[in-house]
Simulated assay, not measured.
Amino acid sequence: MSLTSSPSPPSTSPSCRASVAAALRAAGCVFADDEAELILSAARTPDEAAAMTARRGAGLPLELVIGWAEFRGLRITVEPGVFVPRRRTEFLVEQALALAPDASVVVDLCCGSGAVGAALAAALGPVELHAADIDPVAVECARRNIAGHGGRVHRGDLYEALPGELRGRVGILAANVPYVPTAEVGLLPAEAREHEPLTALDGGADGLDVLRRVASDAAAWLAPGGCLLTETGERQAPAVLDAFARAGLTPRLAVSEELYAHVVSGRKGAGG
């Protein structure tokens, strides 16, 4: 992952922090004090701090204001037009590491910022890491985040983006696909629906259009014993388990009550 040193903040005085926090609180930010600290740490000048505070107050996600999101202890670069990694998706990474702790080939499909791939590579050590997304903005962002792990990023529609030599070799295939039903996209928080790409949110009529495509071809790309993992909604989990089983994978559901996260994994048989 590409990390840059944080510049010296324009001011860390209590009065400056209080002023920024008050502006954020007035705009409805629940964690105004914490957000004020992050904005002041990221800003290089007082004018930039004021501009960042104004953008946050206008509803821009904090991560896009400061230019990064924390994910499993990593600082992941994000920029406008890219899906912001969620803390609950850390559970997907944890499940992948538990199921395939010795994986040597990792693919982050529908990678967005590349946060999942970067986190897996950071935990596993030297791996052959590939990430792919159909969105050019996401591809460029992911390239910056996984460069430090020697990862390669490809642009294209799902498996069409991947090098053919990966077929039958992938130990961990992480696919954090869009899974919000089309009719429910309008119910998402404004930060998501107004500032993140629709292609990263809308999963079709029942939210599973992209997931079914990923599952149907996964076995051809997985190594014997390799795993496909995806995040899904609680109501959708039974249908996802069925899709994985139909694709010839052994499905399993894991749930984190703390993060309200539901991850379905599917393992390819050791005999291929």
Score class of each variant (00 low, 15 high):
A32W: 06
A32V: 02
D33A: 11
D34A: 12
E35Q: 05
E37I: 05
E37W: 11
E37D: 11
L38H: 09
I39T: 03
I39G: 08
L40M: 08
A42F: 06
A42D: 01
R44E: 14
R44S: 15
R44M: 06
P46L: 09
D47C: 09
D47S: 14
A49M: 04
A50N: 03
A51R: 02
T53Q: 06
A54Y: 08
A54T: 11
R55F: 12
R55P: 12
R56A: 12
R56V: 12
R56M: 14
R56K: 12
G57L: 11
G57V: 09
G59P: 11
G59H: 08
G59W: 10
G59A: 09
G59C: 09
L60F: 08
L60R: 13
L60Y: 07
L62I: 09
L62C: 09
V65G: 02
A69V: 07
E70M: 10
E70S: 14
G73F: 07
R75F: 00
R75W: 03
T77V: 14
T77F: 11
T77N: 06
V78R: 01
V78P: 06
E79M: 08
P80K: 09
G81T: 08
G81M: 01
F83E: 09
F83D: 12
V84W: 12
P85Q: 02
R86T: 04
R86H: 04
R87S: 07
R87V: 13
R88T: 09
T89A: 04
T89K: 05
E90F: 00
E90R: 00
L92M: 08
Q95G: 04
A98W: 04
L99W: 13
P101S: 02
D102T: 07
V105T: 11
V105P: 00
V105D: 02
V106S: 03
C110A: 08
G112K: 13
G112W: 03
G112D: 01
S113N: 14
G114C: 03
A115W: 02
A118V: 05
A119K: 02
A119R: 05
L120D: 01
L120Y: 00
A121M: 00
A121S: 10
A121K: 04
A121G: 04
A122D: 06
A123N: 00
A123W: 00
G125M: 03
P126D: 12
P126G: 06
P126F: 08
P126C: 01
V127G: 01
V127F: 03
L129V: 08
H130Q: 03
H130D: 04
H130P: 03
H130T: 04
A132W: 05
D133M: 15
D133G: 10
I134V: 15
D135S: 15
V139T: 13
C141G: 11
C141Y: 01
A142G: 13
A142D: 05
R143D: 11
R143M: 11
R144K: 13
N145E: 08
N145Q: 09
N145H: 07
A147F: 04
A147G: 11
A147W: 07
A147V: 06
G150W: 02
G150V: 05
R152I: 14
R152F: 12
R155A: 12
G156T: 12
G156A: 13
D157E: 15
D157G: 06
D157I: 11
L158K: 15
L158S: 07
E160R: 14
E160A: 15
E160P: 14
L162Q: 08
P163A: 10
G164P: 14
E165N: 08
E165T: 07
G168E: 07
